[in-house]
């Protein structure tokens, strides 16, 4: 099974979930969204990182050279 595709498909929904949670925190009087938004970049970056790792793994030790 291809994990890279799964990760790509999950990226959007997870970002959405995190976005929602950040706003929930903002609403509940916790940390303001203005301060927490960089978390979205981090999550996005993590996904891209995991995706590229997954692609490398699925292509074997040559590291994706085709």
């Amino acid at each position: 099974m291809n994990h890279a595709n799964l990760l790509t498909a999950l990226r959007g929904p997870v970002l959405l979930l995190v976005l929602g949670l950040l706003f929930v925190m903002d609403q509940s009087g916790g940390v303001q969204f203005i301060n927490t938004w960089p978390a979205l970049i981090i999550v996005y970056g993590l996904f891209r990182l995991l995706e590229s790792l997954a692609i490398k793994n699925s292509l074997g030790p040559t590291g994706g050279a085709q």
Partner: peptide, 10 residues
């Protein structure tokens, strides 16, 4: 309203 985003994502 943010729970709509959370629910949607989940």
């Amino acid at each position: 309203w943010p729970w709509v985003l959370v629910g949607w994502g989940a």
